[in-house]
C-alpha cells in the first residue's frame, strides 16, 4: 500500500485508511434520513446546552444528568441499529456482554479507586489548600464560558495523557489493550485494562465541583461530543463540527491497524487541540486493532500490561547481563 502523505507522515501504508472528508461515504437514503443524520449531533448539543443553561435549580442536578446520560445512550443504540457505519462493526450479544463488563468495572471498581486514590482524592487535597479569593474572576465569567473552559482544561490534560500513552512504553502497556478493539460502538470507550481506565480518568474535572451548574454543563458538552468517538453510526458530520470536535471518523483513524494513523487524533472532545499540535488526521478507517485485528479476550486484557512488562523487563535484563558473545576473529 502506498499510503497518503499527511504533513511529514505517510498514512495507510500498513492498513487501509481513507484520508480527506471528500473521500468519506455519505449517508444513504431519503431526505428525512439525510437531514436527521446530518443535524443530529449539533441539535443534541444545542438542546443539552440550552437545558443546562435554563433549567431551574430544582432539576439541574447530578441525578438529572445521569438520567439524561442513560436515555441518550439508549437512543444511540437505536441509531447504531438503524444506520451503522460499517456492518463489520455491528453489535453482537458477545460484544455487548464483554463491553458492558468493562462499563460495569468503570462504574464500580475504577470509580472507587478514583475516589480514594485518584482524581477525587487529589482534587480534594488541592481544594483544601486553595485560596478561593484568587479564583473569583472565574466565577464572574458567563456560565457557558466557564463550562467551555472546564471541559477544555480537562480535555487538554487528557490529550497529553493520551499522547503520553502512545509515546512512553510504561503508559503504552496499559493503553495498548484498548487498541485491540476491532470495532467501534458506544461502549468501546470503556474497554481496556482497568489501570488505564484509572489513569485516563486522572484530571482536574472534579476541581470545579464548587461550580455545580458549570460543571454539569461541561459534562453535558463532553457527553454530547465525546460519546460519538466510539459510535458505529454513519453521519454526514457538518464541516464546522468536524473542524472543532472529535468524531467517530477521527477516532476510527486513531484505532486503525495502520501504525502511523494510530498516532493521531488524541483529543477526547476538541479535535482542534490535535490541529494545534499537528497530530490531526481527517479521515476514517474500518479495519481496526492490533496484530492484524486479533481480538483479545477479557482474561488477556486484564493481564497483558503485566505479562508484557515482565517479558520486556526480563529480556532487557538478559541483554544487559548476558550480552551475546562475539566470536574471536
Amino acid at each position: 500500500m502506498d499510503g497518503v502523505r499527511v504533513g511529514k507522515r505517510l498514512i495507510g501504508t500498513q492498513s487501509p485508511v481513507t484520508v480527506g472528508w471528500e473521500n468519506i461515504p455519505r449517508v444513504e437514503g431519503g431526505p428525512v434520513k439525510q437531514f436527521v443524520f446530518t443535524w443530529f449531533q449539533p441539535a443534541v448539543l444545542i438542546a443539552l446546552v440550552t437545558f443546562w443553561l435554563c433549567a431551574p435549580d430544582s432539576i439541574a442536578k447530578a441525578s438529572t444528568a445521569i438520567g439524561i446520560g442513560i436515555g441518550f445512550k439508549a437512543l444511540l443504540y437505536c441509531l447504531e441499529w438503524v444506520n451503522p457505519r460499517h456492518d463489520s462493526w455491528r453489535l453482537t450479544w458477545k460484544e455487548l456482554v464483554t463491553d458492558l463488563f468493562y462499563v460495569g468495572i468503570s462504574y464500580t471498581l475504577v470509580k472507587y479507586a478514583g475516589k480514594h486514590i485518584g482524581s477525587d482524592a487529589m482534587v480534594g487535597a488541592i481544594q483544601h489548600a486553595f485560596d478561593w479569593e484568587k479564583f473569583s474572576w472565574f466565577k464572574e465569567m458567563p456560565l457557558l464560558v466557564q463550562a467551555f473552559l472546564i471541559s477544555f482544561i480537562f480535555d487538554f490534560g487528557q490529550y497529553w495523557m493520551h499522547r503520553g500513552m502512545h509515546n512512553w512504553y510504561p503508559l503504552w502497556l496499559t493503553h495498548s489493550v484498548h487498541h485491540y478493539i476491532t470495532q467501534l460502538n458506544i461502549n468501546k470507550g470503556a474497554v481496556g485494562n482497568p489501570v488505564e481506565l484509572f489513569l485516563i480518568g486522572l484530571g482536574i474535572g472534579g476541581f470545579f465541583d464548587f461550580l455545580p451548574r458549570a460543571a454539569l454543563l461541561a459534562g453535558a458538552i463532553g457527553m454530547a461530543v465525546g460519546t460519538y468517538q466510539h459510535i458505529n453510526v454513519r453521519f454526514n458530520t457538518p464541516r464546522l463540527w468536524r473542524f472543532l470536535f472529535n468524531t467517530t471518523e477521527h477516532h476510527s483513524v486513531h484505532h486503525s491497524q495502520d501504525f502511523e494513523a494510530s498516532r493521531s487524533n488524541y483529543a477526547g472532545t476538541y479535535i482542534f487541540i490535535d490541529r494545534m499540535f499537528g497530530t490531526c488526521v481527517d479521515g476514517e478507517a474500518e479495519l481496526l486493532g492490533m496484530e492484524g485485528g486479533r481480538r483479545m479476550s477479557i482474561r488477556e486484557q486484564m493481564t497483558y500490561p503485566f505479562t508484557e512488562a515482565w517479558r520486556t523487563t526480563k529480556s532487557a535484563v538478559q541483554v544487559r547481563f548476558q550480552p551475546t558473545a562475539v566470536p574471536a576473529e
Binding site: W93, V97, L100, T108, K111, Y112
Partner: peptide, 16 residues
C-alpha cells in the same frame, strides 16, 4: 458504598 451501580450491573447481566 455507592452500591447501586453494582446492583444495576448484576441485574443487567442476569437479563443478558
Amino acid at each position: 458504598e455507592s452500591r447501586n451501580p453494582a446492583f444495576v450491573f448484576a441485574g443487567i447481566f442476569t437479563v443478558l
